[in-house]
Amino acid sequence: MTMTTTPAPDVPVGLDEAPVVPPKPARRRSLLKRLRRAPALYLMLLPGLAYFAIFKYAPMYGITIAFQNYLPFLGMGGSPWVGFDHFVRLFSGPDFGRLLSNTLILAFLNIVIAFPAPIIVALMLNELRKQMLKKFIQTAIYIPHFLSWAIVSGLTYLLFALDIGPITVLFNDVFGTRVNFLADPDWFRPLIMAQTLWKGTGWGTIIYLAALAGVDKNLYEAAELDGAGRFQQMRHVTIPAITPTVIIMLILNIGNFLDTGFEQIYMLTNSLNREVADVFDTYVYFMGITNGAYSYSTAIGLFKSVVGLVLILGANWLAKRFTQSSLF
């Protein structure tokens, strides 16, 4: 049996500079040599670099719209500059504190509940022995991803309707209380999380299943020969194998921290739960709908991106410091 790799903690996974494996002297080559070493690699990079230059960086000048009162008809050249007006308006608005705390709470719930859920389900799927069953469950749980939020929200209204929704009826019978799920502010976040988990968990497992599929089978055999039980195998082989993916996914998710999603929240909001439901994404919509606030929504988007950048750099720094995986 050839053991080409040892479990992840000892493997230089996702490393850039971290010297876990003692650097071989051959690695330290001059810049010129390194450049010349593999011209094909640079050739392979070219289409991608061109893509980023054309479709990502060329349009980037659009960010300046956040500092204008942009009107499409006048164009960027003709629209008046307003400096940081939109940001001042956002930060000094009477709703800013509420928007921020609502957004942060949902973002936090997303990270602690919605993020780990697919990992757990993927690990559970990985433990299934019957392949047919595994395939069936995988296919079933990934279906909701294909239903739009409009449909999911329609179903939510159907199931949680006051007094008549099947889930409401069941809940009322079991707990002997009359709950108005859709209007009660206390139930807003649990409902949002339930929707998110229902819609996204199965889809989210795919990436971890792919990571699990990449695990060298020999590792399991070796572990088994060493007398490792099932849970020990999970702990020493499976989990280390997906850890780099989990960390990268976590870092990337943190970058979108303030994106709580517009449609989902908007469709579950009503006059009675709005105090907990208003987030940046829905606020932008309301500002934009009458205001044509192209500039204002660009400004809020920019604010969210900057926050995302700070968080992602922080997360990456932590990951690099304490684990083996990082972006750079």
Binding site: F52, Y57, P59, M60, G62, L309
Partner: peptide, 15 residues
């Protein structure tokens, strides 16, 4: 640069 492009975008009109 890739990370930056993931977080920031020029928006609908320049695109």
């Amino acid at each position: 640069l890739i990370l930056f492009a993931m977080l920031f975008s020029g928006g609908m009109i320049p695109m």
